[in-house]
Design a protein around this nucleic acid. Structure first.
Ligand SMILES: [Mn+2]
Ligand SMILES: [Mn+2]
Ligand SMILES: [Zn+2]
Ligand SMILES: [Zn+2]
Lengths: 138, 138
DNA sequence: AAAATAAACGCAACTATGTTGCAATTAAGG
DNA sequence: CCTTAATTGCAACATAGTTGCGTTTATTTT
């Protein structure tokens, strides 16, 4: 089964029409070797209307198909969800790493499970954003 | 030594003039019982010019006097720096917790040190954003 | 295969924050 | 009190977010 068929099935599974725009956006996000910055999506999809891009991204986020990987509140990055996610629950066990040199953001699985405890508090979600220097930039 | 004198000294230490605007902003941020959302700063300082607020916040961030406590990319929250920080290095050992119920964001010290390791990568900074339900909202 | 329908799309319009330049004001030091 | 460099307010521009609405289209129904 080719990637386009896969995306079509994925979209329909989330009750979203498999339109050319959505398939194109997904292929752009999926084919990027790391988390893709918003500006890069714009570059690659400059023929999209601004609002369409906005709504398409939101639909994918809401459908649990992509997720944000923003690190340190500058540009927003997007990456495919690997696990099964929904709008309410993005089940990511990984962390986001941003290289301060090449500005690449990637989703990284950590071996040792992160244990965070806060007294008298119910923890629902933990997001970890790591920055430093990546393998290529050392 | 009263709080205003303290802030004046703090500003001068970072080579920033201790102007009434800056002292007022700092007192607003410091007197808030948790991390203060941007909109709340605006409410309390509606007599500030938009650009002045923008530049004052930036000066405080750059001077390592306040820091951002943004959680999940909605509104930006600000809090006083407790440790000695600079623009390049905000030395925060704490995590940011956001209550999904009351939307309060707070800086929380964690007892057990968080250990994150990523192979072939130099880690410079780790930011942890926790969300859930706070003590008051349980 | 054609028709029906609900969703998706493009365009216009508006809001909000970020950002810069410049002239006027003001804090800090002598 | 004077000087000077920093700070502030205003105007102006940029960009992302957001909504409404008429048109188009993917998918379902006949
Ligand atoms: Mn990720
Ligand atoms: Mn904090
Ligand atoms: Zn790198
Ligand atoms: Zn709460």
């Amino acid at each position: 089964m080719d990637i386009e068929t896969k995306f079509t099935a994925l979209l329909r599974d989330r009750n979203l029409k498999a339109t050319p725009k959505r398939l194109e956006l997904l292929s752009v996000v999926a084919n990027y070797n790391s988390a893709i910055p918003y500006s890069e999506i714009q570059n690659k999809l400059h023929h999209f209307d601004r609002v369409t891009l906005y709504r398409t991204l939101n639909a994918m986020l809401d459908g649990g198909i992509i997720h944000k990987a923003s690190v340190s509140s500058d540009e927003v990055y997007y990456a495919m969800c690997r696990e099964y996610c929904t709008s309410e629950c993005h089940n990511h066990k990984h962390v986001h790493f941003k290289c301060l040199q090449c500005l690449e953001v990637s989703c990284v699985d950590v071996t040792n499970p992160i244990q965070i405890q806060i007294p008298n508090v119910v923890i629902k979600q933990v997001e970890i954003e790591v920055s430093g220097v990546c393998e290529k930039c050392i």
